[in-house]
Write a protein that binds this DNA or RNA. Structure first.
Lengths: 198, 198
DNA sequence: GTCGCTAATGACCAAGCGTTCATTACGTGG
DNA sequence: CCACGTAATGAACGCTTGGTCATTAGCGAC
């Protein structure tokens, strides 16, 4: 396992260097996504991200310049919840509920949404990024939701999804954390219906 | 403004000492509440709290032993949302909505609920404390809400309030952040009704 | 092969953190 | 009025962090 020729235990074993910028860059991005999702912006460290990616923290700095730029590069815009908009407006709540649950369940606790909910409360910059993404995700809805208070209702829809994300995926408190996806979808559909159309 | 007798600008001016443990302890607790609510557990610092309280950080340690113990001492259980339970079950959603909005609006962005929403996402310990308080706050509701899925509905109610808190009081995104309390109460009542009784 | 470009390393730095503790000075009981 | 208990101070420490940079080594061009 040592691989290195005849090294004493205490001896320094300078790591073998692999020269592959693109693969390293991709590995760092992936590691950063996971680390930021697990710990939030503040408690995630460049050194931990580098270790996960199998490189040194110096290389992370070389590729991304700063922790903040890495965050911006690693946390992509939320995978869309907007492709569910076309269709009968009367069943929009059900479609949104199903799309949300499916997306989150498949993300293995590393969805950008989770990352932002973890990071925004304590980082002004993350809060700004969160707000941009939220706005971009929600804008398409304004065209599909009618009524004078459409904007408010869409915002309340977002707030509800944030609350569920917080409880189920971030803090993971019971009974929401272990509720079956189907049951969650039902509850969500009912509530979103009241928010949007009630 | 200097107050000190003939001190040169560069000269050290050892602060006058006031001996008042109880007042200092109270001042520290108040400063801690505000600091934790503004920045969350991680980004609040003992030195800043001490400065707000007009003492040195050594004194904070002397009185509370550690940052964690200070947090536990400073963030009291959420002021109750349970005294609203007695009454016609059919109007419970309206009463909860009104109580929640009134409590949050009067807290000047320093409600324990806000502190926990800010701290729990990135601190395991804060998350535990959050869970305890949530459970204590919600338990009384289980007696008032009927049906086989009462526990789930109560949890979803909590999730919705978390989401609204997050958007309106923590990240302060529009339009929720500037919505009038009355309007917010209306929206909340309608949504909580769907969650609890829908 | 070897030369040069640059990817990659790891030692280093300064700042900020929570925490410790020797020292100081306030105020009270004698 | 002095002496003592202790509230309060602030210097110091150890650690972690994000960030810098001189040095090293892989690899393609020639």
């Amino acid at each position: 396992m040592t691989g290195c020729t005849l090294s004493v235990v205490t001896e320094e074993t300078p790591r073998k260097r692999v020269r592959d910028p693109e693969a390293h860059r991709a590995a760092i991005l992936d590691a950063a996504r996971r680390a930021f999702a697990e710990h939030g912006y503040d408690r995630a460290t460049i050194r931990d991200i580098a270790a996960r990616a199998g490189v040194t923290h110096g290389l992370v700095m070389r590729h991304f310049g700063s922790k903040e730029q890495l965050f911006i590069a690693a946390v992509p815009g939320p995978r869309d919840l907007a492709d569910v908009l076309p269709g009968d407006p009367a069943t929009l709540p059900e479609r949104v509920a199903a799309a949300f649950v499916e997306r989150m369940e498949n993300a293995d606790h590393a969805d950008p949404f989770i990352t932002l909910v973890r990071s925004a409360p304590s980082r002004e910059k993350a809060a700004k990024l969160y707000d941009e993404m939220r706005r971009a995700s929600l804008d398409p809805y304004l065209a599909s939701v009618t009524g004078p208070d459409a904007e408010e209702r869409v915002d309340l829809l977002a707030a509800h999804l944030i609350g569920v994300t917080f409880s189920r995926y971030v803090v993971r408190s019971e009974p929401l954390a272990t509720m079956s996806p189907e049951r969650l979808t039902d509850h969500l559909a009912r509530t979103l219906r009241a928010i949007l159309l009630g």
